[in-house]
Simulated scan of single mutants.
Amino acid sequence: MDDRTQRVGFVGLGMMGTPMSRNLAGAGFDLRVYDADPERTRAVAAELGVTPVADPVELAACDVVVTMLPTSAIVRSVFLGADGALTIPLRAGTVIVDMSSSDPAETVETGRALAAFGVRLVDAPVSGGVARAADGTLAIMMGADDEDAAALAERIVAPMSRSVYRTGGLGTGDAMKALNNFVAGAAFAATSEALIAGRQFGLDPQLMVDILNDSTGQSFSSTHVFGPHVVQERYASGFALPLITKDIRIARDLQRGLGRDAPVCEAVTASFQEALDALGGVDHTEAYRHWSGESR
């Protein structure tokens, strides 16, 4: 079967979801889009020439539903009520591809609940940010217990991705994403600390970033984030402080659940949580301003 005949729903049209859905529409899928903001739903559907969904119940007509939402609790609430019943009358065999940065334990629990109705859940969180979402070059970490569902999901996400890594059973993609974002957050925090100290000692911040990028201190943050968003003070990377803090907290809780002593993850979680408590829902790069004392 040509996968483009599959009816695909896309839930969550934020900074990542909108360009991701744009790539699905461009690949020719029969796409239906939904966002909690009705105006956004109508605007994106009109731009892409796809079907707007006014009520999530309409997603029952879909063969595959893709979600790109802030938390795993929100993902669950789209499909399951507090009593555990389906909120959308999905057919047995429907595949849900959750591309959010979800909690792996909650994903496993949601997957079990959906399986009781014959609905198959695949976790497929993404990395690469808004630019790669727009380019269709995201890295995707995919976990699934059902091989047929995973194979279908892999074909559906292909227009959005450069690479798909099959990580294992359900929840393993989410675990990998949280651990990846912990590493990214640790690099951002460490680079911030170094720049703050360097500036105080008299070093030029942009020169420091240039040297880091030509040396062993290089990271995604130093290469793509610090120049435009910290040194040039744009503070508009597209990755919100509440979201990266949530992801790092998931990584911390994962390690606690495994009984591991994880002092670096504990420290990074505390640093980001402190910045979040002080700044609220800003871009994550503004944490630098808080740590440096500029926001006080």
Rank of each mutant, 00 (worst) to 15 (best):
T5L: 15
Q6L: 15
G9W: 03
M16R: 09
M16N: 07
G17P: 05
T18P: 00
T18W: 04
P19S: 05
R22G: 13
L31M: 08
R32Y: 09
V33E: 11
D37L: 12
T41Y: 06
A43R: 06
A45W: 03
A45T: 03
E47V: 00
G49Y: 08
D55Q: 13
A61S: 14
D63V: 06
L69A: 06
T71R: 01
S72V: 00
V75H: 07
G81Q: 06
D83A: 10
L90V: 07
R91H: 13
R91G: 12
A92E: 12
I96W: 10
M99F: 03
S101K: 04
D103P: 07
D103M: 03
P104Q: 02
T107Y: 00
T110C: 13
L114M: 11
G118P: 04
V122C: 08
D123Q: 09
A124F: 01
P125A: 06
P125H: 04
V126K: 10
S127I: 12
G129P: 05
M141H: 11
G143W: 08
D148C: 07
A149Y: 02
E154T: 14
P159C: 09
V164C: 04
V164R: 04
G168K: 02
G169F: 11
T172K: 10
A175E: 12
M176A: 14
L179K: 05
G185S: 10
G185L: 05
A186Q: 11
F188C: 06
S192L: 12
I196R: 12
A197W: 01
G202V: 10
L207R: 14
L207I: 14
L207G: 11
V209A: 06
V209Y: 07
I211S: 12
G217W: 13
G217T: 09
S219W: 07
F220E: 09
S222H: 03
P228I: 01
H229E: 05
Q232W: 05
Q232R: 15
R234M: 08
F239Y: 10
P242H: 07
D247R: 06
I250H: 15
A251T: 10
R252S: 09
R252N: 10
G257L: 00
L258G: 07
R260C: 12
V264N: 07
A267K: 04
Q273N: 15
A275P: 04
V282Y: 07
V282G: 04
T285N: 00
S292F: 02
S292N: 14
S295P: 01
